[in-house]
Amino acid sequence: MTTRFTKDHEWIKVEGSAGTVGITDYAQHALGDIVFVEPPEAGRVLKQGDDAAVVESVKAASEVYSPVSGTVTEGNAALADQPALVNESPEDQAWFYKLTLSAPAELDQLMDRAAYDAYVKGLE
């Protein structure tokens, strides 16, 4: 299993050609209390950087960008009923969607955990 991160604070865990996408702990902390999540529907074809999901706090809505290109296989339905899961378990239970990667080489453009941690540290 490989985990990679974007500068926009999404994470993707990849096994073979199957990826799982969510937002980082830094992102959930910055957004504050999450009150609504709209994950993508299965079958949706995403290009890297596309708006893939919506996450809303009391004060604003934010787009989640797809870290890589691929076809969505499942959106996390649990988030519709429990949006606060994004605050409680951002990098585990509160995954947003799973997809089949169509261009795995895109992962090379993303950061590993150490690089992302250093990147976040630089933002503070």
């Binding site: 910055a30 504050g32 604003a60 809505a61 934010s62 787009e63 960008y65």
Partner: peptide, 12 residues
């Protein structure tokens, strides 16, 4: 995801 540098949300 979109995070505004001012308010940490996607306020545009």
């Amino acid at each position: 995801m979109g995070l505004c540098p001012k308010c940490d949300s996607d306020c545009r």
